[in-house]
Design a protein around this nucleic acid. Structure first.
Lengths: 151, 151
DNA sequence: TATTGTTATACTCTATAACTATA
DNA sequence: TATAGTTATAGAGTATAACAATA
């Protein structure tokens, strides 16, 4: 019984990382928005919001996708007017992907929805618990067994 | 600045739920195991470990997959000897999916690896923090905006 | 020679429908 | 009639390789 805490967190994380959990979350966050925004295109959209104007190759490295995959997904977002392609003035080989105002708005809405949903569910918590949870979760994700740079 | 805690948790969860995080985790947990065990078949395997012998239709409802999908994935696990099919003595229409000893062993190994990885990353934490985190995470997942029965 | 974006091919997975058998 | 399991078809998405253009 030495690993009770690890077992407990492992079990909870298993629930959190389930496909059905992610599907439910995605449905909730994108309900009523552009049809082109789905679980495939959203990482491109939100990644681009983080990086700012960016080549497909660089964005692919940022979000862990192949540049061909980024290019195809960007097609859909471009057709829906959420993203534009412009020549990179600094490198004639590259095309900069840029969010349109509509694209920015979509990202802002989904981020707000997520933060609000979390805020709602924490409403019944003692404030100190909520802050403690935010801090420990952050530390766990940054340092934990899932961190990107974990050796 | 009223939603700082919600924003903070939202950001952290975004990192945790990324595809690259899940891919990294899956690779780590299944390294060196049966080739048939991948991100597609593992949910069937671990779901079956939770439910015990179970029909494809029931298991599908448990893990959020179509019965045709369960059937196909079970084919691969069966070919690798991790799962067996037996007639349901109580319902001649049904076939019970059952983990073999090898299948049980795979699930045990991956669960242990995950718990150990978490335990390792918590080693540098004050024990009280680790227990608090386990408790708050559990509560958040059970009650939070991602809970299955959340209305 | 390496990297850019894009496109074509082959492959995998899934959803829908269809089938047979049983409750 | 409804549900079980399985399989066939069609559709979507990806990875690999290839392409032309530029560094």
């Amino acid at each position: 019984m030495t690993n009770t805490t690890g077992d407990d967190i492992a079990h909870t994380l298993g629930l959190l990382l389930r496909r059905s959990t992610r599907t439910r979350l995605h449905t909730r966050l994108t309900d009523g928005l552009e049809e082109a925004v789905d679980d495939l295109t959203y990482p491109v959209l939100s990644g681009l919001a983080r990086t700012g104007p960016c080549s497909a190759a660089d964005l692919g490295r940022e979000v862990g996708l192949d540049r061909t995959t980024v290019s195809r997904r960007a097609d859909r977002l471009e057709r829906s007017g959420l993203l534009e392609r412009h020549p990179d003035p600094d490198d004639s080989r590259a095309t900069l992907l840029t969010l349109t105002d509509d694209g920015d708005a979509i990202v802002a809405v989904t981020r707000r929805r997520l933060a609000d949903a979390i805020e709602d569910s924490l409403a019944s918590w003692p404030q100190a618990d909520a802050r403690t949870f935010a801090r420990l979760l952050r530390r766990f994700v940054d340092e934990g067994p899932f961190a990107a740079d974990h050796d």
